[in-house]
């Protein structure tokens, strides 16, 4: 069965998403004519530029994460596929204010390679870049090179914050790397998403089962469990996240409860409630909480939990004002 979707010709989908962002941003974001690159119209002069971007289909990541305190330019890939080097390079030129450009990407082979090629091309054009990859999925062994989930939101938010303080490229990249190192995420999927181009589901799952460790592209998870109630499921996930660092009593964290696409805010509140309770039992303080769709995979039902272990500098940066131009308004 083909999933019902409010789209037009899939060939034009990436462009039409970006055009929607431009309309929603009312003059604060523009779209390059020839390539799918979103750019802030008023980037602060002398600022380190931030370029993000990955496969489309995960909105609001990254198209909706543009604005002061977030990305300066977004390189839009095709559905679930990393952007091509020329798209990233165009975003780099658009974001560059002469102080270098920071690439923030999720750790996927395609993104890694395309950003690497783009960085080589940017160097040829005289633009200095640094790249920080977020890979925080605890369902994978660290030596495999963990893939990135919704945690990229925090890497971007804190990098955006420090770039707003006048930090140079190395300071911004070092901070972003520290954020990436202190992120842990785990997802659970209840029902699959689909590829908008074909309308086909990305995986199959039994009615009474859930998939733990699901990737944001709808790749199969690493373990299939029977459906559980919210509290034991949340406990299992929080324990796995906290145990992975491991976190100690007295640690301070930021929490992101991310909707994978089709999970209700009602459920997210129930999960948030239990996540806070479980962390408090461990003596861990949740400094701030983000709830909602940040990194989605179409109509996939399920959620992910992300913890960011904070230090004093990160905590101060987290509190700095920022504005998404088309997704979350302050």
């Amino acid at each position: 069965m083909v999933i019902k979707k409010a789209i037009n010709d899939p060939e034009n989908l990436v462009r039409e998403i970006a055009e929607g962002v431009v309309f929603a941003a009312h003059g604060r974001v523009r779209l390059l004519e020839d390539l799918p690159v979103l750019v802030r119209t008023a980037i602060e002069p002398g600022k380190v530029g931030i370029v993000v971007g990955g496969g489309s289909g995960h909105e609001p990541m990254y198209q909706g994460l543009i604005g002061p305190g977030y990305a300066d330019a977004v390189a839009c890939g095709n559905m679930f596929a990393a952007p091509t080097p020329d798209v990233i390079l165009a975003a780099t030129h658009a974001a560059d204010q002469g102080k270098g450009v920071l690439y923030l990407q999720a750790n996927y082979a395609g993104d890694n390679m395309n950003y690497e090629i783009a960085a080589e091309l940017a160097a040829d054009d005289g633009i200095v870049t640094r790249t920080v990859r977020t890979g925080e999925d605890v369902s994978m062994a660290p030596e495999l090179g963990r893939r990135g989930l919704a945690g990229s939101f925090f890497t971007l938010k804190l990098a955006g914050a420090i770039c707003g303080t006048g930090a140079d490229l190395d300071q911004a990249a070092d901070l972003a790397q520290r954020v990436a190192d202190n992120l842990r995420s785990l997802s659970v999927a209840f029902s699959p998403g689909s590829l908008p181009d074909t309308g086909e589901k990305t995986f199959e799952i039994a009615e009474d089962e859930i998939e733990v460790g699901m990737g944001v592209h709808g790749e199969k998870g690493v373990a299939t469990l029977k459906m559980a109630k919210a509290d034991p499921l949340t406990d299992l996930m929080i324990d796995k996240l906290a145990g992975d660092y491991p976190l100690a009593a007295g640690d301070r964290v930021a929490l992101l409860v991310n909707d994978m696409g089709a999970t209700t805010l009602m459920e997210l509140y129930v999960v948030t409630r239990r996540a806070h309770q479980r962390l408090a039992e461990k003596g861990i303080t949740v400094v701030d909480t983000w709830i909602g769709p940040y990194c989605t995979t179409q109509e996939m039902a399920g959620f992910s939990l992300t913890l960011l272990r904070l230090d004093a500098e990160m905590e101060a940066l987290l509190a700095r004002p920022a504005a998404n131009e088309s997704f979350l308004r302050p």
Binding site: G77, P85, G110, I117
Partner: peptide
């Protein structure tokens, strides 16, 4: 190919 395909396979086959 590299500038149109995207993803890992575009970078790999293009390279």
């Amino acid at each position: 190919l590299m500038m149109s395909s995207g993803g890992a396979s575009g970078a790999i086959f293009g390279t």
